[in-house]
Design a protein around this nucleic acid. Structure first.
Length: 486
DNA sequence: GCATGATCATGC
DNA sequence: GCATGATCATGC
């Protein structure tokens, strides 16, 4: 039926697809138009694909006008005779010229009542996505999507070494559905394989779940953005980057959890001597995190498993009174970008939904304050002890009910114009403060106050970021600590 | 002692 | 040189 590739052969399909390398989507359509016998473009013209309304249409475009098969609404694999699923997905080039996936890779819808009877091996997911033909195009800000260039084409199969973690992710998702918590699923729950919502339509459409009367959002299995970035930088682009590996056995999260918690009670001083860490001059702000990486057998923060899972390690100092002094900083944001973004695609929503934090808590003992008053670091470190470590990700309800409010207030004030007042050497602004919200607030976050970014108004303003409220983080981690004891 | 602004220090 | 994690500093 077709003359371009053998539809029974994955490698033939891949070879044919590789010819796309270097071409834009517009090139494909233009080529189609020159084929006089083609009439299919009458149905979907170039204008259709140029319009933003047809999101996700780049995959359809390739299916229709390059592979020339009709869209297949039944959910078996795209090239079902070869067992190959086609995925067209964007990547971007960062400021520091590294490459990362622009988005998670959405795999297949989750049917809550069916999936609970599956294992990963018997799942519809693996049936459909065992072999994926990845077509990567370069997302470039500001140009029409038809002018994006396809730069990498490759067959992808889940590597053997990732299967254990993906299986445990799969089971974690199933177990949450089985305990009637499908409405509390979050992408941050898992490491490589996530349960994601699918943009605006999925976010407003709800469905029933088998073990609870609460309506849950439609979700789909996906490979998390962090995992896809790793896939891009190791399997797709000839590998340059090297990572450390964590030598774990059994369940990954349990291993991390147990390994760090085995050192509970040890002081910074003891840990420094155990791992042969010293410093000269002032005490590094990352001393605690260096120690944590040593405990995990890593040279630095470059563990492959953490990068693939989007795990961020945060060290926290707990006061002897169990209070938490410092708020937790998140990466700075771009004012103009935020002033235009929608909540569903917003950076902060994406970041908090996808990120899993590893909190490693150090606690000051009752002697600490004596030395803190005179800033005697060597002695302070004898009285600062590893307290416990825990994985944490923000719940959906806190993201949707609290962070969203702070985000929208910030966006609103950016668009109205930031009000700033000078008091001596300090500038006070009207961005959401920690008193306004239970979960987070906005704070300056630059190298100094001259470290600025442009506002929508054209003026420049000190870089800012979201900070998690200290009181909120304290409540969250102490609840987890308590759970751990039980 | 809290709230909020400012900046240090590392690592890439 | 910049982004970011982590904290320090000021003022009420």
């Amino acid at each position: 039926m077709n003359y371009y590739y053998d539809e029974f052969s994955p490698t033939s399909i891949e070879l044919y697809a590789k010819k796309l390398t270097g071409f834009t989507f517009r090139n494909i359509l233009e080529h189609e138009i020159t084929l006089s016998e083609s009439t299919s473009l009458n149905k979907y013209g170039i204008e259709y694909f140029e319009s933003n309304a047809a999101k996700g249409s780049l995959g359809h475009l390739i299916e229709l006008y390059y592979f020339h098969y009709m869209l297949n609404p039944c959910s078996s694999a795209d090239f079902n005779k070869a067992g190959v699923e086609l995925k067209v997905t964007p990547y971007k080039i960062n400021k520091n010229s590294t490459r990362s996936a622009k988005e998670r890779l959405v795999l297949t819808n989750i049917d809550y009542s069916k999936v609970i009877n599956e294992t990963l091996e018997t799942s519809h997911l693996l049936d459909k996505c065992n072999l994926i033909l990845l077509i990567y195009y370069l997302y470039t800000k500001g140009i029409n999507k038809l002018d994006y260039t396809i730069n990498y084409v490759q067959l992808f199969q889940i590597p053997e070494k990732d299967l254990d973690i993906i299986r445990s992710d799969f089971n974690k998702i199933i177990n949450k559905i089985k305990s009637g918590d499908a409405h509390n699923l979050s992408e941050g729950d898992t490491l490589y394989l996530g349960a994601c919502t699918k943009g605006a339509t999925a976010n407003s459409s709800y469905t029933s779940q088998p073990f609870s009367d609460v309506q849950a959002k439609h979700r789909a299995f996906c490979f998390k953005n962090s995992y896809m970035t790793y896939v891009l930088n190791t399997y797709i682009i000839p590998k340059k980057k090297t990572y450390d590996n964590i030598q774990y056995s059994g369940d990954f999260e349990n291993y991390i959890f147990n390994t760090i918690n085995d050192s509970t009670g040890l002081s910074i001083t003891e840990l420094m001597s155990n791992y042969n860490i010293n410093y000269m001059g002032s005490r590094p702000k990352n001393l605690e995190s260096s120690l944590v990486f040593k405990i995990l057998g890593l040279k630095s923060n470059n563990a492959e498993e953490f990068i693939k899972a989007g795990i961020k390690v945060k060290t926290i100092r707990l006061e002897n009174s169990q209070s938490l002094k410092e708020n937790i900083s998140l990466p700075a944001f771009d004012f103009i970008e935020m002033s235009k973004e929608s909540w569903d695609d917003s950076k902060i929503n994406t970041y908090l939904s996808e990120t899993k934090f590893l909190f490693v808590v150090f606690k000051k003992d009752s002697e600490y304050k004596k030395y803190e008053d005179i800033t005697d670091y060597p002695n302070m470190d004898k009285h600062l002890h590893l307290y416990f470590a825990t994985f944490w990700n923000m719940s959906n309800s806190d993201i949707e009910n609290e962070v969203k409010v702070v985000w929208s207030k910030t966006k609103e004030r950016l668009n109205e114009g930031i009000k700033a007042k000078k008091h001596g050497s300090r500038t006070f602004n009207n961005l959401p403060s920690s008193k306004e919200n239970r979960v987070c607030h906005i704070r300056p976050h630059g190298k100094n106050k001259d470290d600025t970014l442009p506002l929508p108004s054209g003026q420049v303003f000190t870089k800012q970021s979201f900070f998690l409220n200290a009181s909120y983080v304290r409540d969250e981690i102490l609840a987890l600590k308590k759970e751990q004891r039980n």
